[in-house]
C-alpha cells in the first residue's frame, strides 16, 4: 500500500486511541476529586496529569495557574492545544479524510460523525454530570471506531498499520498513566491512610477498565505490586504493556520490508523482555525508572516505524 496511506491510517488510529486515553485519565481524576477535596492535593493531581500527557508547560504558558476546571477545559476542548481531545478527534478525522477511499464507508462515517458531534458538547456548561457524559462519549466513540474497523475492514496491510498505531499509542498511554499514579502514590505514601490508597489504586484500575479484571484475576486485596504486574506483564489484559507490545511485534513481523529488520528486532526485544520479565525485578530497579525507559524505547520504535514504512525517500 502507499506509504502515505499507511501513515494516515497509523495516525488516525493513534489519535483515536489517544483521545480515548485522555478521556479515561480525566474521568478518573474527576472521580477522585469527588472523594478528596483538599485544594493542594487536587492541584497536585492535575499538575501531575498535565505533566503525564506532556502538556504542563504549554498549559502554564497559556493559563497561568493550575485549577481543575482549567485543566479539564485545556485537555478536553482547547483548540490551540494540539493534544486536546477535541484536536485529537479532529486529527483522527483529518487523517481518515485523506484516505477515506481506503476506509470502509462505515469507518469513515463513524469518524466523521464523531467529529461532527463533538461540536455539540458545550465547553462553557460543564457540570460534573455533563463531563462524565462527555468522557463516556469519547470512550464509546473510540470503542465504536475500533469495532467498526474490526468488523468491516479488509484484513490487509491497511488494517495492520491501523492496529500498529492503536497498540503503540495504547502502550505509551498505559505506561504514562502508571507512571503518573506511582509518582502520586510514592509522594503520598508517608501520610495517606489505607482507605485513600484503596481508592487511588481502584481509580487507576478503573481508568484502564481493569478494576473488574483485577478482581477476577487476583480475587484478593489491591496491592501496588499486583496492579503493576497486571498492567505491565499480563498478556491477557488488553491495555497491559505486554499485550500491546506483543501486538506491535506481530504486526511488524507481518508488514516487514527490507529496511525494517532493525525495527523488528527492537520490537521483538521489548516484547521478549515483557514476556520473560519479572515484576519483582522491575520493582527492585524502580518502577518509574523502568517506565521511563519503556517510554523512550516505544518512542524510538515510533520514529523507526515512520522512517521504514511511512515516509519513503525519493527512490522508495
Amino acid at each position: 500500500m502507499l506509504s502515505r496511506t499507511a501513515d494516515h491510517l497509523y495516525w488516525m488510529a493513534r489519535y483515536t486511541e489517544r483521545a480515548e486515553n485522555l478521556a479515561r485519565m480525566l474521568d478518573v481524576n474527576c472521580r477522585m476529586t469527588l472523594l478528596r477535596q483538599e485544594e493542594d492535593v487536587v492541584r497536585r493531581r492535575w499538575t501531575s496529569t498535565l505533566a503525564t500527557v506532556g502538556q504542563l508547560e504549554p498549559f502554564l504558558a497559556a493559563r497561568g495557574t493550575v485549577s481543575q476546571s482549567a485543566a479539564i477545559d485545556w485537555i478536553s476542548f482547547e483548540r490551540s492545544n494540539p493534544g486536546s481531545i477535541e484536536q485529537c478527534l479532529d486529527r483522527a478525522r483529518e487523517n481518515a479524510h485523506a484516505v477515506r477511499g481506503t476506509l470502509t464507508s462505515e469507518t469513515w462515517e463513524t469518524l466523521n460523525s464523531t467529529w461532527l458531534e463533538i461540536r455539540g458538547f458545550r465547553r462553557d456548561t460543564v457540570s460534573a454530570q455533563a463531563l462524565a457524559n462527555f468522557f463516556e462519549w469519547v470512550k464509546f466513540r473510540s470503542h465504536l471506531a475500533r469495532g467498526v474497523i474490526q468488523g468491516t475492514m479488509l484484513h490487509d496491510d491497511a488494517l495492520d498499520f491501523t492496529w500498529l498505531g492503536t497498540y503503540l499509542e495504547r502502550a505509551d498511554n498505559t505506561a504514562r498513566i502508571l507512571d503518573a499514579r506511582f509518582e502520586m502514590l510514592a509522594e503520598d505514601a508517608a501520610n495517606s491512610d489505607d482507605a485513600g490508597d484503596y481508592y487511588e489504586w481502584s481509580a487507576l484500575l478503573r481508568s484502564v477498565s481493569a478494576f473488574e479484571i483485577y478482581r477476577k484475576v487476583y480475587r484478593d486485596l489491591i496491592t501496588p505490586r499486583r496492579v503493576a504486574e497486571l498492567l505491565i506483564l499480563r498478556e491477557s489484559m488488553p491495555r497491559a504493556l505486554r499485550h500491546c507490545m506483543s501486538r506491535v511485534h506481530q504486526v511488524l513481523v507481518k508488514v516487514a520490508n527490507d529496511r525494517s529488520t532493525e525495527t523488528l528486532r527492537r520490537a521483538g526485544e521489548i516484547d521478549a523482555s515483557l514476556q520473560y520479565g519479572r515484576i519483582d525485578d522491575m520493582l527492585a530497579t524502580g518502577l518509574r525508572r523502568y517506565l521511563s525507559h519503556f517510554l523512550s524505547r516505544t518512542g524510538d520504535l515510533g520514529t523507526r516505524i515512520a522512517s521504514d514504512f511511512l515516509v519513503s525517500d525519493a527512490t522508495g
Binding site: 500500500m1 502507499l2 506509504s3 502515505r4 496511506t5 508488514v255 520490508n257 514504512f309 527512490t315 522508495g316
Partner: peptide
C-alpha cells in the same frame, strides 16, 4: 485502485512508480 497524490509517485528512467510500504 490507489488514490495517489503527486508526492506518492516518482519517475525513474522513464518509468513511473508509486511509493508503497513494500517499496516502489
Amino acid at each position: 485502485i490507489e488514490l495517489v497524490e503527486g508526492q506518492d509517485l516518482f519517475v525513474d528512467d522513464e518509468i513511473v512508480y508509486m511509493r508503497t510500504t513494500q517499496g516502489p
